[in-house]
Simulated scan of single mutants.
Amino acid sequence: MNGIEIGVNPMIGHFGPFMPTWYGLLVALAVAAGWWLGVREARRRGLDTEKMRSMILWGLLGGVIGARLFHVVDRWDLYAGEPARALYVWEGGLAVYGGLIGGVLAGLVYARLAGLPFWKTADAAAPGLILGQGLGRLACIPNGDATGAPADVPWAFVYTNPASMVPPELLGEPLHPYPVYELLFDLALLGLLWSLRGVYKTDGLLFVTYAGVYAAGRFLLTFFRTEQVWFFGLQEAQAVSLAVLVILVPLLAWRLRARGTAASGRGGGRDLKNAAPKGGSAG
């Protein structure tokens, strides 16, 4: 067999009425790691950590709804015959982009209601978001719900368990280990954000950097996936990536203009101060 066999059952086992899955366990660990880092960054930035925890809860709820909705739309072939299965989140199948969009919108609503400074809060959340995304990709490995494109490489994944979410026609076929690719990319992006979090002085720039770099990377990485094509040969994630990049251009210009305005204001204040004679008032 050319590649690494993935034959694990996505379900851990039966424990009375409970049927835990590897996907649920690993996603929970990823959420916990992202939560911890987000609260840690909020504390470092002087934000109300209790409000930050509440915002994360809102974001999680909105994220799960958005992630499931995007996944169901993208893989409607799996749910057309049994629409009720779209509600079975525990089976796996959460689209990262849907989770990000739903989570950010829910977080924005809470930030407005709670009086949190949105851009400062978004910057605090960015490292935790990408950490959670990266670790969350580990959950996709036993579940098979981020199916890579056919590949002829020695590190290919070969799924053999029919209980996985890999399309039946791709069982036993060597596939790109897409979850590993994105995990490595996400960790590299986390390193970038970590190095910039003390450099940027304008609120919002770190979050915009996170969203922009992730969108560009996701657009390229998706060439190694096998999902539904939306239009012009682009898969769902690629179409959303392009839309995100288009939206981020004016956002970046806005935050850079805010930085320039703040810098000129500080500079102007110094000039006026220095222009006053040392002996008394100029009048």
Rank of each mutant, 00 (worst) to 15 (best):
P168L: 12
R68L: 08
L78M: 07
W58A: 09
L242T: 10
V249H: 02
P117S: 10
V244N: 04
V249E: 10
R44Q: 11
L100C: 12
V8T: 09
E91Q: 14
N2E: 15
D77T: 11
R85F: 11
A216G: 13
F15Y: 12
Y79H: 03
G7K: 02
P250Q: 12
K51G: 05
G212W: 01
P127G: 06
L256C: 12
G134E: 02
G66H: 03
R218P: 06
L105K: 05
R255Q: 07
G191E: 07
F18S: 15
F223P: 05
L25T: 09
L87M: 15
S281T: 14
H71Y: 13
G46N: 07
D123M: 04
L245F: 04
Y97H: 11
A106P: 04
G267W: 06
G107L: 04
K120T: 13
E236C: 00
P179L: 03
G233T: 03
A275C: 06
G3V: 10
R270Q: 15
L196Q: 13
P167K: 01
L25C: 09
A111S: 14
A28Q: 09
L189E: 06
R218I: 13
W58D: 05
G128N: 00
G233H: 01
G128L: 01
G16C: 11
V246I: 15
G81F: 06
